[in-house]
């Protein structure tokens, strides 16, 4: 059982951004992708989620053997068990967090079955308390007027509520101060387990001190070019990415 990305090529307009990406995250593991700005990290997250701006030319993503790209609508992929925490979560004016998450859970129930409201709020408050989100936030519009840190916490809250099989966290650390980073990381760590695979996309090694990965991958120009254990993240932090690029050139 795994989230498996095979020879993935994707473009936005005429520009190819993912150029044959291969990656497999077995269930129960936490993997990290590190890479410079513009290497295609966020594109990978959006392509998997099904963002309409991106076009997949070749390749597939298999979620426990199910091809995500055979599911045309993004909501089918989500209900299959994929969750993407976005780098820049969208604002949805007038839709409260409580109603938003409830609609997402309701969508996972069989036709005609109603979500139990009392149980739902109990569950929601429990997760909010864990993430130290004020309960008043339930009646605030999704991400509207939120600080960067509040948006990221709200993403993790959604993940905790929707209980995905595989989650991709795109730059979840950006915009977080150290306290928020700790809280968010605790929220993510609480979801680690044998029944779930996580892919953490980040720019900085800092996050990986809190969410310690099993495997670290380096992404350059739309491909995974190197993989290693968590010490690889430390090396990248200390020495930058130039040596990786040199090594690839030598191999070529």
């Amino acid at each position: 059982m795994s989230l498996k990305i095979e020879n993935l090529h994707a473009n936005i307009g005429d520009r190819e951004i993912l150029k044959g990406l291969n990656l497999e995250i077995p269930k129960g593991e936490v993997h990290a992708i590190m890479g410079k700005n513009g290497s295609g990290k966020s594109t990978l997250a959006k392509v998997m989620a099904g963002h309409p701006d991106y076009e997949v030319s070749i390749g597939q993503v298999l979620l426990d053997g199910l091809n995500l790209f055979e599911m045309e609508e993004p909501d089918q992929r989500a209900r299959t068990g994929l969750f993407v925490a976005f780098q820049y979560p969208m604002e949805v004016p007038g839709v409260t967090i409580a109603n938003f998450i409830r609609a997402a859970l309701q969508a996972r129930l069989p036709e005609g079955e109603e979500l139990d409201a009392v149980e739902y709020y109990h569950h929601l408050y429990e997760k909010m308390d864990m993430l130290k989100i004020d309960r008043k936030f339930t009646s605030r519009a999704v991400n509207e007027g939120f600080s960067g840190g509040e948006k990221k916490r709200c993403e993790i809250l959604q993940m905790a509520m929707l209980n995905p099989v595989y989650a991709v966290l795109d730059e979840t650390d950006s915009g977080l101060d150290i306290d928020a980073l700790r809280i968010v990381s605790e929220g993510v760590n609480a979801m680690r387990g044998p029944e779930r695979g996580l892919l953490v996309i980040t720019h900085y090694q800092r996050l990986l001190d809190y969410i310690v990965p099993d495997v670290v991958h380096v992404m350059v120009d739309g491909r995974i070019v190197m993989s290693g254990d968590k010490t690889l993240a430390h090396k990248l932090e200390a020495e930058g990415y130039d040596w990786v690029e040199k090594e690839i050139l030598q191999q070529a």
């Binding site: 609508e73 993004p74 976005f86 969208m90 839709v95 609609a103 997402a104 969508a107």
Partner: peptide, 17 residues
């Protein structure tokens, strides 16, 4: 897209918006 990425069907998402 954001709504759909959370599993909400397109039509339901539109009505929520």
């Amino acid at each position: 897209f954001y709504m759909q990425a959370r599993g909400i069907k397109r039509d339901a998402g539109r009505r929520l918006i």
